[in-house]
């Protein structure tokens, strides 16, 4: 009787331990959802997962979802300048009580979604605690129709 009890407890502990370290898509450890999703064009993504991420952990009670939100994008848009270039902008909101520096980089693509080899340098944006700042970038020429913006914490 005692042996059976011990075996059951050991099995339960092992199962719980195994479930605790399994996150989405077979990744183990701290791997947010953002790491495995495909980046669509005309989107703004956080490549620094400490800024904004969703972690899904599988437990015996189901999936546990936890969100880390230091920075959010309140509004975003794209337009064409007077000279025909594609301009992309986003409003970055700092949801912490500390000043943050965010760096952004834009990649531009043509109408066929082929890369134009137009990749901007990192542009630093200073976002005060609980404040807002604008990141804006323009393409080099009027052939750009799609973009991908990547954001990370300033280094």
């Amino acid at each position: 009787m005692m042996k059976t009890k011990s075996a059951l407890v050991t099995a339960l502990v092992l199962t719980l331990a195994a479930c605790g370290t399994t996150t989405q898509n077979g990744y183990t450890g701290a791997n947010p959802v953002q790491r495995t999703i495909t980046n669509e064009l005309n989107t703004i993504v956080f490549i620094d997962h400490n800024l904004n991420r969703t972690d899904i952990t599988k437990t015996i009670f189901g999936e546990k979802v936890s969100n880390t939100v230091k920075v959010t994008l309140d509004r975003s848009g794209m337009s064409n300048t007077a000279t025909g270039q594609l301009e992309v902008w986003t409003m970055i909101r700092n949801r912490t009580d500390y000043d943050l520096q965010i760096e952004g980089k834009a990649l531009f693509f043509d109408a066929n979604q082929a890369p134009l080899m137009d990749e901007s340098m990192w542009r630093r944006v200073y976002v005060p605690a609980n404040g807002t700042a604008i990141y804006k970038e323009t393409s080099l020429n009027s052939r750009a129709e799609y973009f991908l913006v990547e954001l990370r914490e300033g280094r």
Binding site: A82, T83, S120, M121, W122, R123, E137, T138
Partner: peptide, 23 residues
């Protein structure tokens, strides 16, 4: 280096979107 590359990239994109120069 990162400052040189960032400043020249920013100035270049700004000049290219200036109608007085480009149009």
């Amino acid at each position: 280096s990162q400052d040189i590359m960032a400043v020249t990239d920013q100035m270049m994109r700004d000049m290219l979107s200036n109608p007085q120069l480009m149009n």
